[in-house]
């Protein structure tokens, strides 16, 4: 696998690869986001008890599940960079942190807005919500560490250590609703064979999850390209790119 990957481990090649992939991700995610939003907001039926405001689920669930996936992806990238000394993995990890933080914030905010009418409170200090808040702080800590060090490689290694320490939190978030009696409900689509949701609601939800995933992919590519540029500022190929912009 290593040999096959090797050419892509060169910054310039991976920058080009990211550039060719980006439009596909960008276009498909925009299309699916529009479809998903319209489907979820206007076409999906109302829920039996929660009426119309259950529609928040179409953004709450994608941001929440994917913010955890982004964290795991970030931790994987850190691990790869530590084991194989692959600098590009550092760039990928650095690119993902702000995206994960934004999604976590979105999930918390939409959750609070949703909790107000349905539970009767925007916030309770139970296991799920608290551990999820810690996830947001972890993301912010990682971002802060990335910015604290002048040297990018150093910053990545420092942030990487915090990322790996924080992985402990992920299973706690995931299983908190099963381990403790929390106010938060258990997962809706944990069992694919028999999801606890009518199919007219499930399909738009799955569409939205896919749309968010593609959007995260596109954002990661954009930020990854930036990180590669910043980390290879002395390379001739970056200098050439910069010269073109400078001329304009």
């Amino acid at each position: 696998m290593w040999k096959w990957l090797h050419p892509y481990a060169k910054p310039e090649r991976s920058y080009q690869l990211a550039s060719t992939l980006l439009p596909w991700f960008a276009i498909s995610s925009i299309v699916l986001l529009v479809i998903g939003a319209v489907w979820g907001l206007a076409f999906a039926p109302a829920e039996l008890y929660q009426k119309e405001y259950y529609r928040i689920i179409y953004i709450h669930v994608p941001s929440a599940t994917l913010s955890m996936s982004v964290y795991m992806a970030m931790a994987t990238a850190v691990l790869i960079s530590m084991v194989w000394q692959l600098k590009l993995a550092d760039a990928a990890a650095a690119a993902m942190a702000p995206i994960g933080a934004t999604l976590t914030a979105t999930a918390l905010i939409t959750g609070a807005i949703w909790g107000a009418p349905s539970w009767g409170t925007s916030w309770v200090w139970d296991a799920r919500l608290t551990s999820y808040l810690i996830l947001l702080f972890l993301y912010l800590g990682v971002i802060a560490l990335h910015n604290a060090f002048e040297d990018k490689a150093l910053a990545s290694r420092a942030a990487g250590i915090l990322t790996l320490v924080g992985v402990v939190n992920i299973p706690i978030i995931k299983y908190s609703v099963e381990w403790w009696n929390t106010l938060h409900q258990t997962a809706t689509i944990s069992k694919l064979s028999a999801p606890s949701m009518s199919s007219e609601m499930l399909w738009p939800l799955l569409t939205n999850i896919l749309a968010f995933a593609l959007m995260i992919g596109a954002l990661t590519l954009i930020r990854f390209k930036n990180e590669v540029l910043a980390r290879n500022a002395m390379r001739p190929w970056v200098r050439e790119l910069a010269a073109k912009v400078g001329d304009k």
Binding site: A46, W119, T186, M197
Partner: peptide, 14 residues
């Protein structure tokens, strides 16, 4: 304080 606990089921009225 009374809080409503929702379960994981979502059902369309029809």
């Amino acid at each position: 304080e009374v809080l409503a606990k929702h379960d994981e089921n979502y059902v369309a009225p029809e």
